[in-house]
Design a binder for these strands. Structure first.
Lengths: 336, 336
DNA sequence: TTGAAAGCGCTAACAG
DNA sequence: CTGTTAGCGCTTTCAA
């Protein structure tokens, strides 16, 4: 920066100011000088050192986010929505993925905090005690997403997975289904999956139906293959089963394909529903009934909330904890 | 850090040294003192400032990577492989996604370089001239992945998409297929897709077959829905079509489902093949013939290459450009 | 094994 | 609108 300044016969500060604001403001260099500075940077191959800038200004420009997995489009869509929301404010998303493992999450939180993010977005409300403490004492706004929490750390953007599955159960009930089951992964490996199962149990109980037909197969993320194996196990154990609700569209698709492979009609022999509103549930045949979630919207709202909180904190204020309930939609399709 | 030091009656440097190495080395604090330091950090809620550390040591601990899209499991698997490979060396992956857009890539490269990464991994070899110049003059090792390039910037980890599709064409030819077509997106929107189409054209020409049955529908990433529409258009235009090779498994799955919807037997009426070895191609019924790619392996090898280059550069040397050709496998399945 | 001094490249704060 | 000065929290380097 000093070299650029020397070349143009100005001070470092003038260069710094020209580079630090894309839109001119009061007390910026004149537009002409600003252009000459930018050109010289280009010519000399100068790229501003964000580390030094962060160090001096105490603003990293990072928003840290943790998602369970990268290759689950629900979560990558949330990350995408978050990125879009914050990049207009010049913020960059620093992402980590936990592989659905809480100790990994704690370790990642510690690593991410060392980068001094200006805000943090985590998925869900299950954290190790230390992780929770780290988030609380981080000094920056925290948003927990996807689940609706009774005791959020600060901000919360999500919906009740249990309630959504409950509505799905009632929708299937209204179509005449009675002997319904739930197919998911091991509850301890996935808080959201456990919530969905809980919603199934409660809704069935409310309808005075037998809620014992549930199967847990494998750890999160539950694969399509697990869905295929699961549906076979369920039908052999409960031949009277009329409909199965799966913890995700991936599991539902695995189950659907296995039925097709064995010549079992869907929804004739068995109705199948999923969760998540993934592309595949719409593309396949028959299309799979699902709970469509606004994954990108969750990220976008979380980002907007953070920007608001960050703006306030720069003027010395603090945004009161906010909870935003996101919508979802039961999509009844051919598979039921 | 000064507070921690003061509390224990030692100097900042002792604390710094205790914190900077997880495994003790020569000239570190005694193990007992080291434990007391770590405990005090925990008690006082101290989290080391990586920004200051980077600033002082000139090592960011970042590996920057650019992928076309987050929600394509091929690329997210590569990112996953890269992360696993470098995290053991204490490196963190800083990710950006280009949405298959080259100007966006250029902008992201500029942004990422400001964070002073110690290595860069980009997808493919198509970059704007300025992006290429930025990468070349970044001063850190660069790996281009997925495509096999004739003129890589430095290191290259990938395979020939054209050759892979060529092998697929010959495998289908061996099964008796002659009237084959290619279904993909607009070539200018996706260099890899264009390569795959090119491989189709060349292989068909080599076999003395008519290679005119190709359709480009939509920009990358081509959706399942586009695959569904595409297969209908192709069959109405070329009713004699026996087999269609799709630019990705997603497109192939969309095509397959549309055929099922319309009661067209696959592979009876039309054989369908995909590309990428995605989970869905294996889970669906019939299973889809595909080119299985070691996506995670690409990231892993790229990461190892970078670690080697970084280690060398710390001793003042420079790793000569390396090209690693990754394997792929033609998976013949029920859809053909 | 430990400590003291210097400085990394930028921006905040204030002065002009 | 521009410049000067000080300093961000670490690590490097050198000395003990």
């Amino acid at each position: 920066m000093a070299d650029i300044a020397a070349r143009l016969g100005v001070s470092k500060m003038t260069v710094s100011r020209a580079l630090s604001r894309s839109t001119r403001r009061r007390s910026d260099a004149s537009e002409d000088l600003r252009q000459r500075i930018l050109n010289t940077c280009q010519e000399m191959g100068y790229v501003m050192d964000q580390t030094a800038r962060t160090f001096s200004s105490k603003r990293s420009g990072f928003i840290a986010t943790l998602i369970p997995a990268l290759n689950n489009s629900n979560f990558s869509d949330t990350a995408h929505g978050l990125t879009s929301a914050v990049e207009s404010a010049g913020m960059q998303v620093l992402m980590g993925y936990t592989d659905y493992d809480m100790p990994t999450e704690e370790q990642l939180i510690r690593t991410l905090l060392m980068r001094r993010p200006e805000g943090i977005v985590v998925t869900g409300g299950s954290h190790t005690p230390l992780a929770k403490k780290l988030l609380e004492s981080s000094g920056v706004p925290v948003v927990e997403t996807w689940d609706l929490l009774t005791q959020p750390i600060a901000h919360n953007v999500g919906f009740s997975n249990a309630q959504a599955v409950g509505e799905l159960v009632r929708a299937l009930h209204a179509k005449g289904y009675r002997r319904m089951g739930f197919l998911g992964g091991l509850p301890q490996s996935d808080a959201r999956g456990a919530d969905r199962r809980q919603g199934f149990l409660e809704a069935m109980a409310q309808l005075d139906l037998d809620a014992t037909r549930t199967l847990a197969i494998g750890s999160a993320p539950v694969s399509m293959e697990a869905g295929a194996q699961g549906v076979v196990q369920m039908l052999s154990r409960w031949p009277e089963l009329e409909a199965v609700i799966c913890v995700s569209d991936h599991v539902a698709f695995g189950a659907l394909s296995e039925c097709q492979r064995r010549g079992w009609s869907v929804p004739g022999r068995l109705a199948i529903a999923g969760f998540g509103g993934f592309e595949i549930a719409q593309a396949c045949h028959p299309q799979i009934t699902t709970v469509a979630v606004d994954s990108a919207g969750i990220g976008k709202v979380a980002g907007q909330l953070l920007l608001k909180a960050i703006a306030l904190s720069r003027s010395g204020q603090k945004l009161a904890p906010e909870t935003v309930v996101m919508p979802y939609r039961i999509e009844l399709r051919g598979s039921t």
